[in-house]
Computed example of a mutant assay.
Amino acid sequence: MVTVTIQHVHNDYSIYENVCISPEKLCHVIEIYDFPAVFKTDDLLDAFAEYSDGGIKIEWVDDTHALGVFSSDTAALHALSICHPMLKTRALTEASKKSKGKATRRAGM
């Protein structure tokens, strides 16, 4: 008797993507990064509570990177000024390739 097992691919090649972000298309999205891998969605939502009057959605990229999708460009720009001891932010145009790729795929670009 022969036993066959199927192994799924474990490699992520998204960091090799060439992604061009049009600054005017996704200005309401920022990258949140360099936070502890134990953080959950609620931790990020709590950190940005002051900046999310119109709403915020968190899209996970990996354990230490996420996208903050705000209700407006102004809210996202304001959120970039956050001073938090356990996380960092940057505009999507300056984000990691993996985050840019996720943002463009989600936006259908």
Rank of each mutant, 00 (worst) to 15 (best):
L80I: 08
R90N: 10
G54H: 03
Y16G: 06
V9H: 12
Y33L: 06
D53M: 00
K88Y: 01
T41N: 14
Y33N: 12
V19L: 04
V38L: 02
I56L: 14
T89I: 06
M86H: 13
D63N: 15
K98R: 10
Y33V: 01
D12V: 07
A75Y: 00
D63P: 13
S71V: 03
E50K: 14
R90G: 04
E50I: 02
V61K: 08
I30T: 14
T89E: 03
T74P: 00
L92Y: 06
Q7M: 09
I56Q: 07
L92D: 01
S14T: 12
E50G: 12
L44A: 07
D46P: 02
S14P: 00
K40F: 02
K57H: 12
Y51P: 13
H28V: 00
A66F: 02
D53Q: 06
T64S: 15
I56G: 10
A76N: 12
C20L: 08
V9L: 09
L44F: 02
L92F: 06
L45C: 09
G54T: 07
K40S: 11
G68F: 01
H28N: 14
G68K: 04
K88V: 01
D43P: 07
G55W: 05
T41V: 13
S81I: 00
L87W: 02
P36H: 05
K25Y: 04
K40P: 04
C83R: 09
V19Y: 05
S14L: 07
H78W: 09
V69E: 14
P85W: 00
V38C: 07
D12E: 13
T93R: 11
L45M: 13
T93L: 10
L77F: 13
E31P: 00
V9N: 15
S81G: 15
K40A: 12
